[in-house]
Design a protein around this nucleic acid. Structure first.
Lengths: 342, 342
DNA sequence: ATATCAAACTAATACGCATTAGCTAAAAAC
DNA sequence: GTTTTTAGCTAATGCGTATTAGTTTGATAT
């Protein structure tokens, strides 16, 4: 047995019919009359010979592929730094598979390499693209959208694109409100960035919310980390030097929050009695830190599912009134911020 | 401007040459003579018109695609439960991109749906496949390998396949040796499975290592979890009832270990003084638990890189003497098991 | 001045499938 | 009994590229 592709031509010969009929039978096309008998015979021969359609030939003939692309725009070293992307992939694959589509994952370091995206689309490698990355994306890809390529952007609020975003503004507000509600007035935060628009935007939300509570924000209370525990740890060491020492800390992701918690413990301070901590993401380990971490849960795999459904609608030309899909976050109250059971 | 694909034919017309020359010029083929002048002119016209080769047509003509597939074989709900796969993907994409290949991610629940793999290969969707999943894989795909399809399997030791595996046997041994070396004789473990061969195999390693230290293993000391902190937490609650209470715990992944640590803390016991804990994986948060987690680091993204290089060798027909690539683990000593600084 | 050869190019074909136009024979209509 | 219809099929063509087998032109050799 050698590696050899079975073609419709071969099936046709074996079944004693034309290649045309084989194609029609295999695709259940009823536009052209075709007796039930021969259809069955063709199908039998096909499965007997182990026929599998050649994806390339099919795409070429139809001028359409059933692969969709997921393009991640962010510095290489932090693509999978947090489980956000894996969660999105889970959701994407789940619905794509059900609809007979495949997922191609690509990654570009920054907005200078965007040509990959237009190559994939123009080259017919993918029928559509789901984009995740920094803001600015909507400007860079505007021409592609204009020309009619199906593109769905994650976590952008641009009116130009179809987007599926998580309502982080509200997520941030719910966390801050929770802290304020527990009486905290000196709130510090470890944020990421400020290297991209997404981060800046979230930071803006934080400032706004604090301002709405009439809390002046000392810039020294806002530190920056790089998504990982280490940077949260270092940032917290800086914050702990401040006078007056903040009574509450908002870590903009759980990774940095857990790093901060370690720094706090090392100085002998108690959580939440001396410093309350709240995180963001609700990662799997969040319920098992010591103390358990109060955090904000974002529906990430659901975002993947929604994005898949939206890109498929665009590809199949269905009407999409819901150009902007917004998903809500949820505050998960545990022990690290007080105000609830362990 | 409409969405319209630029073809070599159009370029040929505009440049006043035949389509053949366009193809030759674009592919830097020197088999056929071609004046430097016209080559340049063709390239200029091509870039001016924004030419992008049609992937489908190219694949069809060449009988070869530059997409490789990553197929994950495991129950749906635990595909991305741990960051193992994301780490592997990082490594894969890193080298594939450099070599001009794309990555297609597919997922199948169990070994009953393996047809997807043969479809992808026979249908020419992918030039090769990297497989990750339960043991048994090598048997199921034996016929595909025989026929000559390039397949690389992760973490299998079958002689039938090309594999890239992490030396977990040694990883387990290093952890156990560490505990024994610190004087522990009553060692408990929270393992995963026993639903698949991979898990069983690792469990066998654990037993072996303990036996080599002349430590009898009370079956009650071995509990099973399901990869996540919750299950580690529950398993540990059971273990804490035992008499005599073990003095050391080996969590077969960091997630379950962190869950177990919580259970230990809740009973008022101290780590590592009362119970020493050791994990497996060295996830990002491991250095920031309280106390920091002694664990075994597995070179996961390196495994992805190696797998990519191997599948490319297979595809390009290069000789591969290294049918079995083995990567080493490393014991990371922190505080949760004693024997080192905080 | 004719034969030889290489350089530079073109024509033709194949890849595997979908699809449109066209053909044949039997059934229906008049 | 001739025309019209229709069910069931085949032939032919196109998708965009790569590749093999030519063709033309000008230079070199004889």
């Amino acid at each position: 047995m050698k590696k050899h592709t079975v073609t419709q031509k071969q099936i046709a010969k074996r079944a004693g019919v034309s290649q045309t009929l084989v194609s029609l039978a295999l695709n259940n096309s009823y536009d052209v009359a075709l007796s039930e008998e021969t259809r069955q015979r063709v199908l039998d021969v096909a499965s007997e010979m182990g026929y599998v359609p050649q994806a390339a030939a099919r795409s070429l003939a139809q001028g359409h592929t059933n692969t969709i692309g997921l393009v991640l725009v962010r510095p290489h070293h932090q693509v999978f730094r947090d489980p956000y992307i894996p969660n999105v992939i889970t959701g994407l694959v789940e619905v794509l598979r059900r609809r007979g589509y495949r997922l191609m994952v690509e990654h570009i370091d920054d907005l200078n390499n965007v040509q990959v995206v237009s190559d994939m689309l123009k080259g017919g490698e993918v029928a559509g693209v789901v984009l995740s990355g920094e803001t600015g994306v909507e400007r860079v890809f505007a021409h592609l959208v204009e020309v009619g390529y199906p593109i769905v952007v994650l976590n952008e609020s641009s009116a130009l694109n179809h987007t599926v975003r998580i309502d982080h503004a509200n997520g941030i507000r719910s966390a801050v409100d929770h802290m304020i509600g527990l009486g905290h007035r000196h709130v510090a935060a470890i944020h990421y960035g400020p290297d991209n628009d997404q981060a800046d935007w979230r930071l803006g939300n934080l400032h706004q919310t604090l301002a709405s509570h009439n809390i002046a924000v000392d810039p020294a209370y806002i530190r920056f980390g790089e998504y990982d525990p280490e940077s949260g740890y270092r940032a917290m060491q800086g914050i702990l030097q401040l006078n007056p020492r903040p009574t509450a800390l908002f870590g903009m992701n759980d990774m940095m929050a857990i790093g901060a918690m370690r720094a706090i413990h090392e100085t002998g301070l108690r959580i939440p009695q001396d410093i309350a901590v709240i995180g963001y993401d609700d990662m799997r380990f969040a319920a098992f830190t010591n103390p358990s971490l109060t955090t904000v849960r974002a529906p990430e795999s659901e975002q993947g599912r929604q994005a898949a459904m939206m890109i498929l609608k665009l590809i199949e030309g269905q009407p999409t009134h819901d150009v902007q899909t917004v998903l809500s976050t949820k505050l998960i109250v545990r022990a690290s911020c007080g105000g609830a059971a362990s």
